[in-house]
Design a protein around this nucleic acid. Structure first.
Lengths: 192, 192, 192, 192
DNA sequence: AATGAATGAGAATTCATTCAT
DNA sequence: AATGAATGAATTCTCATTCAT
């Protein structure tokens, strides 16, 4: 019956994704949670702490449920890439479309180094997952390049999606990444 | 000596770029302009109007000074692409790095449709410029794809640049776009 | 092992002495007691009641353990004065130096008449003790004067001690009171 | 017509004297000033800054209007002491009786070192004034003792006055100080 | 055009108190 | 007795906006 920290995080993440950190008020969150503003302080010492916890929570979710897919040896590399794409897409499309990490990062880099630490870790882990996959079809250095490019393309597409209110940008980019992956693989297979 | 609208815009754009719309106060802007808060209202009826004017001002700047390069027939296509890249890079690297349009767009899509209109026009014009260049080395449909991809890559790199506080992401992506352009051109030249 | 009312009083008095009534929160007290805020309400109906009990508790402590010394006929008058001084000094120097009664009194006279009643009794009893001692070396009317003066000097010195963070003010005043007592005694002995 | 900083200080000092720092709210002050809460921030950046300004204002008032009397060579020493006593008494009796410096000092020593700096300066200047007067009728070292004692007695009497709601404590102590001063003077005159 | 004082709505945060478990 | 979640009123502070001078 009682409201838990996780409940609050789950309710607040979509709000933060929708309006950003500054524009989301604790009243908004309290309303969404069906409690009074003051009650949130029983769970989090401040808005900053709530955000920090949300960032860590979501980062861990991605590490455990999304990025982990890249290391699941029971699937082919292509399958893993596809699943990873689908899983992250799911998150980016959910609710008011967007990438929580990118949004909060853009908004708060300058004033909240604490937030940025987590966000940087998120992107590091994401890159690592891509590197792991790409390094199976090309050399490590190139894999790093591909990983960076993949993330930038996805983030760029998420931005376009948000602004144009059109999920196609993201889904299209994801498809391209998959077909490009196959091309690289074929090309390198022939070469060797 | 008198403070003009343009002065205010020039002072406020870097502030908005640094902290976003919500977190930038009229006091911040007034301080930067060396004037009192109330005085800004002689030039703009509201913060919203100031932002809207800033968006239009910057959009026009890009249209006239950056995107226009794409249509300057006195240069080779490659040269134009390079110049366009340099010019936009200049803007994205200036002050607190970032893309004004992307930042404001992300932050305000949901609550300020008025802002979004201009932002969408900006991206439309930007795409058009790229399409114009790419369509000189490949067919129109493909050029559209390349244009979208270029913008998404650049915006993704600007995000990474901001979060990692490292301009390399952007400059590297720009270089890649140029070399890739040459590849496409060569490839198509051979083909035909 | 169970937490008793007395335990709470003993833990809260130093806190109130340190920060005053308003600035000491029930959370502070609960933390000090190793218990949760809500639990305090099993022992005291309100913060006011806790304070009132603390005032009475401390007043009774002074009456029984400090002021009582003045009436202990098994000691010389000087000895009694000295002991009384030492005992009260002990309390005023303990923890965050200061006089609980004076502090709470100053802070709450205007808004909490209930508190003031006890505080006035404290000062009445304190004065009585001094009067009892002084009246043994001079006439009653003069003893009253000396008693008032002693208390004012001590309280003034406690204030200085607190502000200057220097116990010397208090100890020095106490010494002076003792030597002055001897002078009065000698003077009156000669006179009679 | 417009509310000035000084107006706010004059309105807030009695409030702070009555209820202390913590218990006096900006609403109280705003109400007293006939403005809205937010308006106070046009004049003071924070409650702390308001208090700090009030402390400095009052300290300066005492330095210029009260302590200065001690150095006014156009009067006899006794006259100066009397005037100084009257002038400070006036302040301590005004409104809700009490010594602003002592009250704020007691309440905030531990948490606001900034406040304490000013308060310590106040007491240093006060002592200096007394030392200047006493040193004209006895040696310097003794004058220092007398000065400390005078301040402690006065502060102790102000406390008693506040708690007993009876100005007699203060006026009586002041009178005693004056007669004692005469005694010391006579005694030393005879001696030399 | 500029000033600067005032507004008023709303933000985050605190805290004494209540109450079901 | 103790917990810990929730309350709700109050507090400090912010900020876009207005307006007389």
């Amino acid at each position: 019956m009682a409201l838990t920290k996780i409940d609050i995080l789950k309710k607040s993440i979509p709000l933060f994704k929708k309006k950003g950190y500054g524009a989301t008020t604790l009243s908004d969150i309290a309303l969404e949670c069906g409690v009074l503003k003051g009650s949130l302080y029983h769970h989090f010492a401040s808005k900053d702490e709530l955000m920090l916890t949300a960032l860590n929570y979501l980062k861990q979710y991605f590490v455990d449920r999304v990025f982990a897919i890249a290391y699941n040896e029971s699937m082919t590399v292509e399958k893993r890439l596809e699943r990873l794409a689908r899983k992250s897409e799911e998150q980016f499309l959910e609710g008011p479309g967007g990438c929580f990490m990118a949004m909060i990062g853009t908004e708060t880099v300058i004033n909240n180094p604490k937030f940025n630490e987590v966000i940087l870790l998120f992107f590091k882990d994401w890159k690592q997952a891509f590197v792991h996959l790409y390094s199976q079809i090309c050399d490590y250095k190139l894999a790093m390049e591909y990983a960076d490019k993949a993330i930038m393309l996805i983030e760029g597409s998420v931005l376009m999606m948000r602004i144009h209110n059109n999920p196609y940008y993201l889904t299209h980019v994801q498809e391209n990444l998959l077909t490009e992956f196959e091309s690289i693989k074929s090309y390198n297979a022939i070469k060797n």
